[in-house]
Nucleic acid binder design. Structure first.
Length: 372
RNA sequence: UCACUACUUACUGAAUUG
């Protein structure tokens, strides 16, 4: 059983919830660990309903089981369910508190995150980091830095979080300052620096950093490819892409984006067609490429072919029609969408303005249900 | 048989839309 539990965990980490479940069901007397592990294996791979029904059916729910399923809902961005679980838990540990705090942090519910933080009976460095991340990842750089300075201690995650906040805000000097100030650095710290250089347009320095790192992983490689992509160097991106020890869908999509960014749609297409694994982001990348480089027909073909669409797929196509002057078609698409966001409306408004239809733009603006 | 121990949950980095 001990070995089976390890197997289930391994399958979960390898994104094989199916095998994890099979292994679990083959155990004659699953213990608490077996349940907790299989629940997490399902949850982490998006099988939240399986996770939930296992949780509901398990003989005795430990606080760890509760926290696992709570974290699963948080990861699925179902804040309401996460909160409901938190409120109904028979007992809570520091981990449970930090999990709900992290859920609010992730959704940018800063005020609620603060409340949780203040209410927690105890805190550790991870709780502090969770609230720090709430500030850092939602553009509250000043609060983030103040909070960072007020923390009783820092670990490498704290440093990385604050450093990345400034990197994403394209404050290169500040980013480097934190990087130099930290006592120990890990892969994440180094990868942040690559991103910072890339966003600031310093490709050579980004590459120098990449070359001088003590070690690299898939994310590091992808960050460097993205650096070339973002700065309009698909050729160099490809060189690196070919040298990578492994590819995953994120790396491949970054490479596709390197081509689409420059409008090299034939190259993009060739790569896209050769990929064995793509996801919605990859499809959206192709869709965006065709849209932004005047290939409306191809964009539509992609849109109609892709297995599923998210809000940004719709937004891209709407913007493409709108920019090309097919405002009626754009509006028609807009009415067919299930979940609009601000970008959908903005695309249409901008298009009307671009074509001098001030009145229509205004009336669309007025009819919006949400604005940011 | 019992006990002990071990395995499970929370924070930071990479790809697509204004």
């Amino acid at each position: 059983r001990y070995l089976s539990n390890l197997m289930i965990e391994a399958y979960g980490k390898c994104h094989s919830p199916q095998l994890a479940l099979e292994t679990f069901h083959a155990i004659k007397n699953p213990n608490l660990f077996s349940y907790n592990i299989v629940i997490e294996a399902c949850a982490k791979n998006g099988w939240i309903d399986n996770a939930r029904s296992l949780f509901d059916r398990m003989p005795l729910q430990h606080v760890i089981s509760w926290t696992t399923i709570l974290a699963a809902y948080a990861q699925a961005r179902d804040l309401a369910q996460a909160r409901k679980l938190f409120d109904s838990m028979p007992e809570r540990t520091l981990v449970s508190w930090t999990a709900i705090l992290g859920a609010y942090a992730q959704e940018g519910e800063i005020e609620k995150a603060k409340v949780v933080f203040d209410l927690m009976p105890e805190r550790n460095i991870i709780s502090w980091n969770a609230l720090l991340a709430a500030f850092a990842q939602h553009g509250h750089l000043e609060s983030a830095e103040l909070f960072f300075d007020s923390m009783p201690e820092h670990n490498v995650s704290s440093w990385n979080a604050i450093m990345d906040a400034f990197a994403q805000d394209n404050q290169l000097q500040k980013t480097l300052h934190f990087f130099q100030a930290m006592a120990e650095r890990d892969l994440i710290s180094w990868t942040c620096v690559i991103t910072a250089y890339s966003l600031a347009g310093h490709l050579v320095l980004a590459r120098k950093t990449f070359d001088s790192m003590p070690e690299r992983d898939l994310v590091t490689w992808t960050a460097m490819i993205q650096a070339y992509a973002h700065n309009g160097e698909p050729h160099k991106a490809r060189e690196l892409f070919e040298k990578m020890p492994f590819h995953n869908v994120v790396a491949s999509t970054a490479m596709v984006a390197a081509y689409t960014f420059r409008g090299q749609m034939d190259e993009a297409r060739k790569l896209f067609d050769s990929l064995t694994k793509v996801n919605m982001v990859t499809w959206n990348t192709m869709l965006t490429g065709y849209s932004q480089h005047g290939h409306l027909e191809q964009a539509r073909a992609i849109f109609d072919t892709m297995p599923e669409r998210d809000t940004s797929s719709w937004n891209v196509l709407i913007a493409a029609y709108a920019q090309a002057g097919y405002l009626v078609e754009a509006e028609k698409l807009l009415t067919r969408m299930e979940r609009l966001d601000e970008a959908s409306w903005t695309a249409l408004i901008v298009a009307h303005l671009y074509h001098g239809h001030l009145h229509e733009a205004k009336s669309i603006f007025d009819s919006m249900t949400v604005r940011d």
